[in-house]
Design a protein around this nucleic acid. Structure first.
Length: 482
DNA sequence: TTTTGAGTTGTTCGA
DNA sequence: GTCGAACAACTCAAA
């Protein structure tokens, strides 16, 4: 009997799993194993909802495997040590796993491959980062050209999706620890984990009755409508493959009733390509986790005021749309993409706090927290990244609130203190006359914060800080020239 | 090698 | 209220 190990990491699915299929192709028996790396758990200690979602996903995977005559072996320890022991115990001849772009993961895999027969497959993205190169062999650093290349490559179709194996033969006597439950209750995470739920959401979004995908171009920025797919946690842990998403989007596009619907599907698919763009950026430029992608904006004179950062974290900045989004993030582990941009712009530009602090806080709370996408988003907002927002683009939290939460429904939901504030003051409650504040039970400075900064003033301060960073640049250029 | 066109997501101001 | 321009150059991708 030949035996191979399927090393599960962030590919918690049986459908369209290249690593699993590679293991099945190599051997008669396959041992699915998840190794909990204590170092990784320590790093994610504060990310309770994400860890809970992961453990719930492992449970779901175990159940699917048991229905196919197999099960998930759970181990805890340094992956290289644990896999070495496992191979000795079972005489397995190969380990198959999906390649990761995260530097920690890539280094871990390189260490494992030094001593063990590790075979890495694609699957994290539709097109592997190594395929996303310009004609001269260099990686793309601008989104649009990369997206053109991505679209020019053959798109995956439904028939290309690898079906879930019907049976997986696994030796019965392999020791396993019990799969732990998460640090919080699963019911506190608004994303039921597992491949079945991921598929259900994908179908509901793309091909259900009156699918939201067909109005996505119109509604995607509306934080009050909540009309987005909510697939990010599932993609984060591979309960759904990017190829499945792309193939299903292609199908939805064919079925689209009109041009507007087609345009919407394309707009949505672009978001998947953004995900691939940032995975490729992290793969080719791992240093972005430490510092600005752009050398010209390394030295922004941050304020890094601890009290201001705390107010942002806790959602008491006095700007309703910012506070609502921060409450949603910390309470549920998820918030709308538009809301993420608004709070990120506020932290970096209005409060002049280093984007890395916001990046870390997001990673501590997001169920979908992914190093590549999160870093890309923060560097984009800070203007330090690839293809980033121009530094003079500073979001106005009042304008953004009025535009993307017109009746204030989102604000009222996540900042209950503001529930009775009239529509015309909902995004700028400090403009309420004292009498109105009394009558609606929302007195500024008592029931709800006054703004911690004046936006117009903060905007000027940010522009000056960025101008200074650029001013300091010639010195750096002189150094380079020598 | 040089040249040319182009680049997610905004805001403010003044006509 | 609406509209276009300015913001500020800079870097990249491709011919």
């Amino acid at each position: 009997m030949t035996t191979a190990v399927w090393w599960v990491r962030r590919d918690l699915r049986l459908t369209d799993n290249q690593a699993l299929c590679a293991a099945l192709a190599r051997a008669e028996q396959v041992i699915p194993v998840f190794v909990l790396d204590p170092a990784l758990l320590a790093e994610n200690e504060a990310a309770e909802k994400r860890v809970t979602f992961l453990f719930g996903g492992l449970q779901a995977l175990d159940e699917s495997l048991r229905a196919r005559g197999s099960r998930l072996v759970f181990r805890r320890g340094d992956p290289r040590d644990e896999l070495t022991v496992l191979l000795t115990e079972t005489s397995a001849e190969a380990i198959c796993a999906e390649a990761d772009v995260w530097p920690y993961g890539a280094q871990r895999d390189a260490r494992v491959a030094e001593e063990l027969p590790l075979h890495l497959t694609g699957g994290l993205t539709v097109h592997p980062p190594e395929a996303m190169l310009k004609a001269d062999g260099a990686p793309y650093v601008v989104f649009t050209p990369l997206s053109r290349k991505w679209k020019a490559l053959t798109p995956p179709e439904p028939r290309d999706i690898l079906p879930a194996p019907e049976r997986i033969a696994t030796p019965p006597d392999v020791a396993s620890l019990p799969i732990p439950t998460g640090p919080t209750l699963l019911s506190e995470v608004p994303f039921p984990p597992g491949e079945v739920e991921a598929r259900r959401r994908l179908d509901a979004f793309l091909v259900g009755a009156d699918p939201p995908a067909y109005r996505y171009a119109e509604t995607r920025d509306r934080v009050d409508l909540d009309d987005t797919s909510h697939l990010s946690p599932y993609l984060r842990f591979g309960m759904l493959s990017a190829r499945q998403v792309a193939a299903m989007a292609g199908l939805a596009r064919e079925l689209a009733p009109d041009e507007e619907a087609r345009r919407s599907v394309d707009t949505w698919l672009n978001e998947l390509i953004w995900r691939e763009f940032y995975q490729a950026i992290l793969h080719h430029f791992p240093y972005v986790l430490e510092r600005s992608f752009r050398s010209s904006l390394q030295a922004i004179p941050w304020e890094n005021d601890a009290a201001a950062f705390a107010a942002w974290c806790e959602g008491r900045t006095g700007y309703p749309i910012v506070d609502a989004a921060m409450h949603q993030l910390t309470q549920t582990g998820w918030t709308h993409n538009r809301a993420r941009m608004i709070v990120a712009s506020f932290l970096v530009k209005d409060l002049l706090v280093d984007w890395r602090q916001g990046e870390r806080f997001f990673m501590q709370h997001l169920v979908d927290g992914d190093p590549a996408a999160n870093n890309g988003g923060w560097q984009w907002t800070a203007g330090t990244g690839t293809d980033a927002a121009p530094y003079f683009r500073v979001f106005n939290p009042v304008t953004q609130g009025k535009r993307y939460d017109p009746q204030g429904a989102y604000v009222r939901r996540w900042v209950p203190e503001l529930a009775s504030v009239p529509d015309r003051f909902i995004h700028e409650p400090w403009k309420m006359p004292a009498q109105t504040q009394q009558s609606v039970g929302c007195v500024l400075g008592q029931n709800y914060s006054n703004p911690i900064v004046d936006h117009a003033w903060a905007r000027e301060r940010a522009l000056a800080a960025y101008a200074k960073a650029k001013q300091d640049l010639p010195i750096e250029q002189d150094v380079k020239r020598e």
